[in-house]
Amino acid sequence: MTPNIQTFINSFQNRLEPPVRQHLKNVYGTLMMTCGAASVGVYIDMFTRFQAGFLSTIIGAGLMLMLIATADNGKNTKQRLGYLLGFGLTSGMSMGPLLNYVSFVDPAIIVTALMGTTLVFVCFSIASMLADRGSWLFLGGTLMTLLTSILVIQDSSGLCYAHIYLGLLLMCGFVLYDTQLIIEKRRMGNQDFVQHALELFIDFIGIFRRLVIILTQKEEQERRRKRD
């Protein structure tokens, strides 16, 4: 093992206690399962005749609310995990129409956006873990203010591009904030890795969706320039 890799591993071990490290393993393992469920949802919507459309969004919201409303008691993990995977599945299905359109523009955009999302998510997660304890928790108020601003901005206002880029910045900020918040919650005894995986999944999907839109818009603009 090279010295740089060993130093990197030692940094995690020094900053994160064994229970926290184990909790994060559970969180990210569950997150990967949820992303897998979302991929299945995308496939179902794009390549089968079963297209739930807006219904999948409503069902997904219901599953998320059921997960949040069902408190972790140590015995209902499978039930709550089922809610989470169902939410992941319906989230993928709700993205099907967008990705189907993008596949007609340039299928490579989907792969590029997925790789970019993974890279951004991993980098911001590691930065949050290696930062000083609680150093990113101050972002909470700012992020909620930005979220409120995004909700009131309408596409018809001519601020569509600002809306998308602001949303991307917001999601990156939430990765920093949510990661440190999850660590602090575990230190205070909260072992609800399913709920924590839900929070990070929402961040991941938020980044991916906005990168897809940004890359698609750039590709369409480039094609219009070539035609002109």
Rank of each mutant, 00 (worst) to 15 (best):
F208N: 04
L151D: 09
V27F: 09
F204N: 05
Q180V: 04
S56Q: 06
M95Q: 11
T34G: 10
M95V: 03
T142C: 10
G141L: 03
A38T: 05
D132E: 15
M95R: 02
L151I: 12
Y177Q: 11
V194F: 01
L166K: 09
K75Q: 11
A38M: 12
T57C: 11
F8K: 06
R21C: 10
K75Y: 03
Q217H: 14
Q154K: 13
G167E: 03
S149H: 04
Y83W: 09
F124L: 15
N26Y: 09
K226W: 05
F138K: 12
S91T: 15
A69E: 01
F124Y: 08
T118D: 00
M171I: 02
I110E: 11
T118P: 02
A61W: 04
F50A: 08
I214D: 08
M66C: 14
L31Q: 13
M144Q: 02
Q221K: 12
C123Y: 06
E222P: 01
F54W: 05
V27Q: 09
G140R: 07
L81A: 12
V152Y: 00
I164R: 07
W136N: 08
L168N: 05
Q79M: 13
L119T: 15
F54N: 14
M46Y: 03
T70G: 02
V42A: 03
I207M: 08
P18V: 04
L99P: 01
G141F: 03
A127P: 00
M33A: 11
G62P: 03
G88E: 00
A52S: 12
I150N: 14
P18N: 03
G141M: 05
G41T: 10
L166Y: 06
Q22M: 08
G158K: 01
V122M: 07
L181G: 01
T118R: 02
G140N: 14
G41F: 08
D155P: 14
L119M: 15
V40H: 00
L146H: 09
V194Y: 01
D155Y: 02
Q217G: 12
A197G: 10
T90C: 13
I58Q: 00
L114W: 11
N190K: 15
G96N: 06
P18E: 06
I214M: 13
L170D: 11
Q180N: 00
N100E: 13
F201W: 07
F138C: 04
I5F: 15
Q217V: 01
I68D: 02
I207A: 15
R21W: 14
